[in-house]
Computed example of a mutant assay.
Amino acid sequence: MILGSIVALVTPMYDNGDVDKESLKKLVEFHIEQGSDALVAMGTTGESATLSEHEHMDVVKAIVEYVAGRIPVIAGTGANSTTEAIALTKAAKQVGADACLLVTPYYNKPTQEGLYLHYKAIAEAVDIPQILYNVPGRTACDMLPETIGRLAKIERIVGVKEATGDLTRVSVIRELCGDDFALYTGDDATSCEFCLLGGNGTITVSGNVAPRLVHEMITAAINGDRETATSIDANLRGLHTQLFIQSNPIPVKWAVTEMGLMAKGIRLPLTWLTEDCFDPVRSAMHQAQVI
């Protein structure tokens, strides 16, 4: 089981939108040095929605190569087409990813049975650990705990990223899925409490900016050290809020650029952070002592 602070890595780009491999390598080294426990390549924060399938897998392959086995790499391979999700998951296995993260199909609003059959088909097609990803705020599709419980019984489905922010689901999913099933939060604002309640880690946006603090906070929370975890989380509160002042990953890419780790670059239809948001994000970075 992968535990701790799993950073949903941004994808560095030049101002024309092309992927900046040099900065990508620099980011990988930064996260390993700062103690991030794992990386997600090509999740939502990595702008997976606007990269072609070839670019998508090229970034995953590059991250796997740069990491060189030092920490796990989880590839985002979800799609609203089951066939496409299987193809991406097969490609991720081929380039050496340690696991895959599969978002619920978006826009087409499958039923709970449709979700079950979608994930079952992927698990049966590709021999790689697979993590479910529920984020109804983006997909307009909520995978219910009971469906997660059914899927947890399928070999190769090893965990879930539960990004609803609903902390009551932690105990419900744990009871349905058992202790060997990994529970990750995808909501930075509630990640501390999620792990104190028995979660196994966070797939984090804030960890792009303050990786050491997020690692230390999540480690303390997993170990049941409420005092330490909440004390560290207090310094991260601003990031948890201000990194979502505009659509993710707009603010976090600006923040990582402000830290000198990459150049300014994002793909349409996303646009660069507007100037009126600079001060709130910068203030949150000061609070977390990253600048």
Score class of each variant (00 low, 15 high):
residue 78 G to E: 02
residue 67 V to R: 08
residue 51 L to F: 15
residue 57 M to A: 05
residue 65 E to Q: 15
residue 126 V to G: 01
residue 126 V to R: 03
residue 78 G to I: 03
residue 110 P to H: 09
residue 127 D to K: 15
residue 121 A to Q: 12
residue 126 V to H: 02
residue 64 V to A: 06
residue 51 L to Y: 15
residue 93 K to H: 14
residue 50 T to M: 09
residue 79 A to N: 15
residue 102 L to E: 04
residue 120 K to Q: 11
residue 88 L to E: 06
residue 69 G to Q: 12
residue 99 A to D: 06
residue 116 Y to F: 14
residue 119 Y to L: 04
residue 127 D to T: 14
residue 76 G to P: 06
residue 142 D to R: 00
residue 88 L to A: 06
residue 52 S to F: 11
residue 85 A to V: 10
residue 116 Y to H: 08
residue 62 A to D: 14
residue 123 A to R: 09
residue 131 I to R: 04
residue 118 H to K: 01
residue 139 T to E: 04
residue 86 I to N: 10
residue 66 Y to R: 08
residue 74 I to C: 07
residue 119 Y to H: 05
residue 59 V to F: 04
residue 110 P to Y: 08
residue 139 T to L: 05
residue 66 Y to N: 10
residue 104 T to L: 00
residue 56 H to M: 11
residue 57 M to I: 15
residue 112 Q to S: 04
residue 59 V to T: 06
residue 114 G to P: 01
residue 81 S to F: 04
residue 93 K to M: 13
residue 62 A to C: 11
residue 124 E to K: 14
residue 110 P to A: 08
residue 66 Y to H: 14
residue 58 D to W: 07
residue 99 A to C: 07
residue 129 P to R: 04
residue 53 E to H: 14
residue 58 D to G: 07
residue 109 K to N: 10
residue 90 K to R: 15
residue 80 N to I: 02
residue 95 V to K: 11
residue 61 K to L: 06
residue 112 Q to K: 03
residue 114 G to L: 01
residue 104 T to K: 00
residue 114 G to M: 04
residue 135 V to R: 07
residue 79 A to F: 04
residue 115 L to A: 00
residue 135 V to S: 08
residue 56 H to Q: 12
residue 57 M to H: 15
residue 113 E to C: 00
residue 81 S to I: 04
residue 81 S to A: 09
residue 118 H to C: 01
residue 59 V to H: 03
residue 104 T to R: 00
residue 48 S to K: 01
